[in-house]
Amino acid sequence: MRSLIDILDFTTEELDQLISVANDIIANPQKYSEKCKGKKLATLFFEPSTRTRLSFEAAMYELGGNVLGFSEANSSSAAKGESVADTAKTVSCYADIIAMRHPKEGAPYVASLNASIPVINAGDGGHNHPTQTLADLLTIYREKGGFNNLTIGFCGDLKFGRTVHSLINALARYSGIKVVLISPKELMLPGYVKTDVLEKNNISYTETTDLEEVMPQLDILYMTRVQRERFFNEEDYLRLKDSYVLTPDKLNEAKSDLSIMHPLPRVNEISVAIDDDPRACYFKQVLNGKYMRMALILKLLEV
């Protein structure tokens, strides 16, 4: 029995296989509409989330399965002091697979050690969010036809952005990737990601504070939000939150086939005027997330 806690739990072959299944689901949705008939997904969301929970629920319904669960800790036994281990054991009696979001890092891993059914990490604090990475990978694959020899710019909060760290981890296993890191000095990619992931895998990377300067070389621009909840000091947040705001004029020098991605939600870092630009991919990412979650559920349930 497998679970997905960290994107690195899966080999590149397994990720490629998920992408292939997701593409087949997109092409032939009817073929999959009853694959999970009689199966139940438990969505255990100990902190609020709109898109991830709805995406999991939509994924399971489109596979013909059912969903049960809760969307905040107050409406679960956690409010009474139940441990994650006991919750996982209990829910294993009711459902066939668990998707868990928890504010504490490592909680889904604890669940996977105690559940008798597969567990999917749907986000654990600022630690991991592997199904967002699955959505990102499918988006890149569908936009670019593969992962090799791409120049990918990550822009914004590279220090706290877990989606950036996970995606870099996943992409570092492909060849010919070039990474451009665009951030204010205070929000640069942590040193350990550079040494343990980029340098270890011989990935070429550059760091800059100037988005427009590097725009012409990018195949993909991955924008991120500066997250208020990661700052201890409101002043620092206010000073940094508008570091990068992508507006149509900044795309003048960009490639015509650039793909603009964002894990969402956005605040103001991508102007709404860009939404209709054919290069904007962030809402496609949302849809791709659902297809990858469908492929993931099928894989973990072995159906």
Partner: peptide
């Protein structure tokens, strides 16, 4: 020592 780690709230782990 990570205050956001699950072990910070579940002492029996």
């Amino acid at each position: 020592k990570n205050p956001r780690c699950i072990t910070s709230v579940e002492q029996e782990l």
